[in-house]
């Protein structure tokens, strides 16, 4: 359903979620687009890109390619890129709006690439109409289906699911890892995991879903391996005390709940992304599917305090409300980080 959006930028899309999930792995990632989708991801959704030698490419899709549907052009380009660079563990073909319109069969495309290169290949039929949370989930699910082994659960081992720079800065992530490790746990898979850690996903005694992306993935792993999960951010500490306040928190759902738990005050949760899992504690979250819903909610007289990305705080018309800007990379990118209370202030040091 079409939606008018006048003030806010579009949030990080599904293809950014796929790429962000796979970034640290030894992969060749081809975003199947003309230029702009790749530019969206590398320029605005991936702070690790500057100085990186990760093999993330644009396919260079042009109108003639789209009309002819000849995927051989891209298979040849992939083969040339493989000649120029170290051999990856796998290849990922990531969709965008044009392949969606022409009905690209990503499973078939991936099979052809795999046949031509001898390298495990995944096709992700994302199309730029959904959010990064969906892309992260699809990426981890595909890898788990291919590689994860049904190994015995091991006490003290955890996976951290949903940790990407779209929700956490590298520095914040490091602190999160330290918090887990200082609790005597061993981390199997996290932001920096590779194929070896994917193989052993089932070894974890529990999965920690640190974001909405992680929740979707944790739910899938519970179904597949029976691994229980918790939605929490290890070491999370909200330092602000807002006595006698009626706050609205709009953030990644897991972060939003963690903030409310530590606020010491009543607070409503505004969720930007569709609910991913049937956690009862999320049942009362207010789903804000578009800009109009966000504007209406942040300007409701029910709230005297708004905790949200600085761009969302900017939608509040009542100057009497307390605004606590909380940069969310998937919303405002590096601009939001500059204008806000970084999440690093909230994670226990």
């Amino acid at each position: 359903m079409a939606q008018l959006c006048v003030y806010l930028p579009p949030f990080a899309p599904d293809y950014s979620g796929v790429c962000s999930a796979l970034f640290e792995m030894n992969a060749l990632i081809m975003i199947h687009d003309a230029a702009g989708c790749t530019g969206n991801y590398t320029g605005f959704d991936e702070p690790r890109w500057y100085g990186s030698t990760k093999q993330i490419y644009c396919s260079g899709l042009r109108k003639n390619n789209a009309i002819s549907g000849d995927e051989g052009v891209f298979i040849n380009r992939i083969k040339k890129a493989l000649n120029d660079n170290p051999r990856p563990d796998f290849i990922a073909l990531v969709g965008s709006p044009v392949p969606m319109v022409i009905g690209t069969d990503f499973a078939g495309f991936a099979a052809e690439v795999q046949s031509a290169t001898g390298i495990q290949t995944f096709g992700f039929a994302v199309d730029g109409t959904k959010y990064y949370t969906d892309g992260y989930y699809r990426a981890l699910k595909a890898l788990a289906e291919c590689y994860a082994e049904d190994c015995p659960r091991q006490s003290g081992v955890v996976n951290i699911l949903g940790a990407t720079p779209l929700d956490f800065s590298p520095d914040e992530y490091e602190r999160m890892v330290r918090a887990v490790e200082s609790g005597g746990k061993t981390i199997n898979f996290s932001m920096s995991g590779g194929i070896a850690q994917i193989r052993e996903l089932a070894r974890a005694e529990i999965n920690l879903a640190v974001s909405e992306s992680g929740l979707l993935t944790a739910r899938y792993l519970e179904d597949k391996f029976g691994t229980p999960y918790k939605a929490e951010i290890p070491g999370f500490l909200f330092k602000r005390q807002l006595a006698k306040t009626n706050a609205l928190i709009i953030a990644d759902r897991v972060a939003a709940h963690a903030i409310r738990d530590r606020l010491g005050a009543d607070a409503a949760i505004g969720a930007l992304f569709p609910q991913s899992a049937p956690e009862p504690e999320f049942a009362e979250d207010i789903y804000l599917p578009n800009e109009a819903a966000i504007i209406k909610e942040v300007n409701s007289t029910k709230y005297d305090t708004i905790i949200a990305d600085p761009l969302i705080c900017g939608l509040v018309k009542d100057g009497g409300k307390t605004l606590i800007p909380l940069g969310h990379y998937a919303v405002s990118g590096k601009q939001g980080q500059r204008q806000s209370l970084a999440l690093s202030n909230l994670i226990r040091k």
Partner: peptide, 30 residues
């Protein structure tokens, strides 16, 4: 699709002219 507008919008915010552009996000059914 919403994805197509992200770089333009964030670039416009950075350069101070976001008030000059808006979006209609379309999906598959549109």
């Amino acid at each position: 699709p919403s994805a197509c507008g992200r770089h333009g919008a964030l670039g416009a915010i950075q350069q101070g002219f976001k008030d000059r552009l808006s979006y209609i996000y379309i999906d598959r059914s549109d």
